[in-house]
Design a protein around this nucleic acid. Sequence first.
DNA 1: CGTGCACTTGACAGCTGTCAATGCCGGTGG
DNA 2: CCACCGGCATTGACAGCTGTCAAGTGCACG
Lengths: 244, 244
Amino acid sequence: MNFDIPFRRFAAFADLTALEEAALRDLSAVTTNFRRNHIIRYEQDPVDGVYLLVNGWALTTAGFAGGERQVLKIHLPGDIMGAPSLALDRAAETITAVTDVVVSKVAAQKLSRIFAELPRLSMLFFLAAQEERVELMDRLMILGRRPAKEGLAGLLVYLYDRLPRHFQRGLPAFELPLNQSQIGDFLGIHTVHVNRMFRVLEDEGLIVREGRWIVLAREADLRSVVGLPDRRLVRDASWLPPAP
Amino acid sequence: MNFDIPFRRFAAFADLTALEEAALRDLSAVTTNFRRNHIIRYEQDPVDGVYLLVNGWALTTAGFAGGERQVLKIHLPGDIMGAPSLALDRAAETITAVTDVVVSKVAAQKLSRIFAELPRLSMLFFLAAQEERVELMDRLMILGRRPAKEGLAGLLVYLYDRLPRHFQRGLPAFELPLNQSQIGDFLGIHTVHVNRMFRVLEDEGLIVREGRWIVLAREADLRSVVGLPDRRLVRDASWLPPAP
DNA sequence: CGTGCACTTGACAGCTGTCAATGCCGGTGG
DNA sequence: CCACCGGCATTGACAGCTGTCAAGTGCACG
């Protein structure tokens, strides 16, 4: 098990001290395994904490009365899942394991102790929440203003960038455990249309599909399909509270 | 000027102590006025703080190279604007005054001092950020999965609920200072279609338009058009840090 | 070797975008 | 006070993207 996992998202903003690292390590002290397709938390459940994804892929989704659903976020190792529901009476999001996963449940109380004892780390939590807002805002731009083809291209680039770097025959590639229905729920389109858009990207030579693997055959061109501005995280902001 | 403004969003989670109130009051100590349609902050600007909206309406938007834009949030008095960009090198959002507005710029350093000195209030800031994520998630659901008519209905109900309660001839109503182009940028549709959807809601008797005023003629039915689950904020969570 | 799930493809319908013209209204200058 | 102007709202006609329905294919798994 990789003990760096719970640090990544926060260490992006500033190097962590030993005290801060210890507090984060403590969050993933106790882990649970869930099998592929199992539901980790249902929407409407009472909220008493968040979930740290240690290994595998997971989805947070929210459903409509009619049975439709929207994928809110695709979670990769290191992600904190279910945090938005901390602000609510009952959970807004269903959390589902896409692959077999390892998860650590973090009681709200534990977060609270970090806020009480480690101000700088608390502010990093705050910044991570703002970072997630930016990601949602970017998705809003895609869903609101870009055709499905660009949304799919954006998703593939996003996933490639978040995963450990990997190549296949010299070309950037990654294994995609999501089916086209899940991708459709992410992009706000229907399965059939996901398939059409995959075909378009493939026919244009931007990607190659080999089983569950996606090869970014023309990475630069694929990126240029996505019309979003580049964003860089703030690093070592001068205004952060002093390190403990 | 209403001095309760900066408290509302945070007091929703817990009653504030005098110390916490004083810290919040300090955030809006110095205010600036901007005229209708003026830009308060441009995307790509360096980020050194956030903006508290004291009076009036404002918009945060993000633009594409081609000139299209997406409205990310419609801000009403009491909102903190531009916080997501705290996580970034350069601002993701343009902030524009819709009406004449009163704004207080809050240096990131000031937020930082709250994190250093007032743990419970810091956690309320964290929860407010999570609340904003829920709002963005709900918008994702609308943009991804619901037709424009429901999106518009949802927007009208959302605005009515956030504004001071008001009636016109016994019916719930509010004044809407946004034009149809701005509403289109919020819903991810084009002006012409905004107009069509207004017509549909009006023809069905759900709303009445009188100049800039929107009357929710059949409020309950209008609400039922929107397919989103009800959400309630958590209040007095047992796990919050102790009050100072 | 059969079964079930996911993926593919085609045909057609419907929602939304695009283009264009008209009307309305408040602000401005004569 | 009135004519003009510009921005916004409104409407119609048509195109294009995406949804819907249906059928067929391929592959993993028992």
